[in-house]
Amino acid sequence: MCGIIGVIDRARSGMDGSGIKKALSLMNERGSGEGAGYVAYGIYPDFPDCYALHVFYDNLVEPKKKVDDLLEKWGRIVHQEEIPTYEQPGLKKQHIPWRYFYKPHKDLKVGSSSPEDDLVKTLVMDINSRIEGALVFSSGINMGVFKAAGWPEDVADFYRIQDYKGYIWLAHNRYPTNTPGWWGGAHPFNLLDWSVVHNGEITSYGTNKQYVESNGYKCTMFTDTEVVAYLFDILGRRHGLASDMVVKALAPPFWDEIDEMPERERKINHAMRLTYRSAQMNGPFAIVVATSQGIVGFTDRIKLRPMVVGENGDKLYISSEEAAIRIMDPNVQNIRMPRAGEPVIGRVIV
């Protein structure tokens, strides 16, 4: 089932994590206390141009040495530290969350139009598939994921997310069926600038997985959600599609609708369905994706999962439940329920 919520302040005003913690905890009916997580953008102003790599270490002896060596081979570690955590009675610490502020040597990657991103992507895939006891779960610039197995309030307090100020927050309350209790299985999922929270199940996973794998990605998280991050990375970053076009590829209109469209639109949608047929996602889902530039929310083509949207000035909220938005912002306006497959997009304006 799962509960999701996302908020953006389009004027980039920082919000601390206390509001979203309240909102997410309100949706505990949708979770089972086995996974929750948050992601925030704009939280590392002291390192504005470094990749912030968040890593779960099983211990700091073996895997860390390997990761350090690998990172130093391909770039420079500007700063590193353990992510501050605070023991919670209801949460058992299973990993040591660590963070690196990292600058890759971009001249080491040839044949890429975004060499730094591609280098970091390759490092993330390498570490996650090859180094046992290390899992990179966040790898964007000036942003970070905080997640663990537990109830939303415990996870929030464990990281003290109220100490971070971001202009975009996404959060996820998990009811796991696949990998309960595994910290890596909690949402949000992240790769580079892309973060994803997802309520649902992707029945087309096998097809999507093959597509991302044939594009050089490795699925290492044992869950369907990670493909969404990779799909956005391929279509949004590498193919340069705008967010609404990415959504059109992932949750396209039905052929009957396309056939009725005016010529220009019909051509675009027809070509999108043919070209991105293997990226199309099926099954019940409501998804919010964030980048440093904004958030996008969308559901599957027949809306088998709930999604509610609200606004208040510069703030745009997307959530599984209206109540979660209201507790975070009692003055919220324009509450509405988008149609199936219709993207809801909030972009930063400054």
């Binding site: 029945t203 087309s204 096998g206 097809t207 093959q210 293997s278 099926n282 099954g283 083509r301 027949i302």
Partner: peptide, 10 residues
């Protein structure tokens, strides 16, 4: 749980 053939393929 699939409503398009693209999602069955592969």
């Amino acid at each position: 749980g699939l409503n398009s053939i693209e999602s069955l393929r592969g």
